[in-house]
Computed example of a mutant assay.
Amino acid sequence: MSGAGKGVAMRRIWLSVLCVMMLPGALLAAIGDEDLSAEQRQRFHQLTTELRCLVCQNQSIAESNADLALDLKRQVRQQILEGRSDDAIRTYMRERYGDFVLYKPAVEPKTYLLWASPALLLLIALFILARRLRRAGPEDDEADEELS
């Protein structure tokens, strides 16, 4: 294969890769929101930003193009069209996928550690910092006195 032929083949490969990468966006467009009212669209956007993509884990389903996220978006849309409340939709998702699907899980006994962990980590860090400062303090004073 000549150099020009290889270049054409590479362009075709990259074009194919680009098309495959754009496919989830096309699938998302296929979900459509033309039959949702303005209020329903806002609810859909709010709910999809509150639900975590279980595949990506650091993205909401609104941001994700993973197949599971697209399915969850379809479920949210369908439940909005059926007239279910936001709380009912969150409860349904939580019962089906667990607390992890919610970016802000409910405060209840089984999630106390989850909610308290940032404060606990901060307290542990402050304790370690205080111990290090106490240890370093007298040594620094003695070193300064020896230099004088």
Rank of each mutant, 00 (worst) to 15 (best):
F100L: 11
Q46G: 02
Q46S: 06
N65P: 04
R12K: 03
A30N: 13
I89S: 13
G98D: 04
R96S: 12
S60M: 00
Q59T: 14
P109D: 04
V20W: 14
H45W: 05
D35R: 05
L114T: 08
Q57T: 14
R134Y: 12
I89P: 14
G3S: 13
L72S: 05
S2F: 07
E82K: 12
Q40N: 08
D86Y: 02
I80M: 11
L68A: 13
L126F: 07
E108G: 01
Y103V: 07
R90P: 01
D140Q: 06
A38W: 12
S2A: 08
P138A: 05
C19S: 09
N58C: 14
E82F: 05
L18I: 01
L126K: 02
S16R: 07
L36N: 03
G32Y: 15
I128V: 14
K6F: 12
S148A: 03
Q40Y: 04
G25N: 14
P118S: 13
M10P: 04
E139M: 04
L113I: 05
A9Y: 09
L70M: 15
V107C: 00
V101A: 08
D144H: 01
V107Q: 00
V20E: 06
F44W: 07
M93I: 15
Q79A: 11
R135L: 07
M93Q: 14
R132P: 02
L54H: 08
L68P: 05
M22D: 05
V76W: 06
D67I: 15
A66V: 13
M22P: 03
S85T: 15
V76A: 10
P105D: 02
V76Q: 13
K73R: 15
P138R: 07
C56I: 04
A29G: 11
E108W: 02
P105T: 00
K104Q: 06
K73E: 15
R84N: 11
S16G: 07
A26R: 07
P109H: 01
L47D: 11
L102Q: 09
A136H: 10
L81M: 10
A62L: 11
D140F: 03
I124C: 12
L72Y: 08
A88V: 06
A4P: 01
I124V: 12
G3V: 10
L102W: 08
A119G: 12
W14L: 11
E34V: 07
I128D: 01
L120E: 02
V20F: 11
L121T: 08
C19M: 08
V17P: 01
E145P: 00
F127A: 13
S37E: 09
I13T: 04
L68W: 10
W14D: 06
R90E: 13
K104E: 08
E139G: 06
L133P: 03
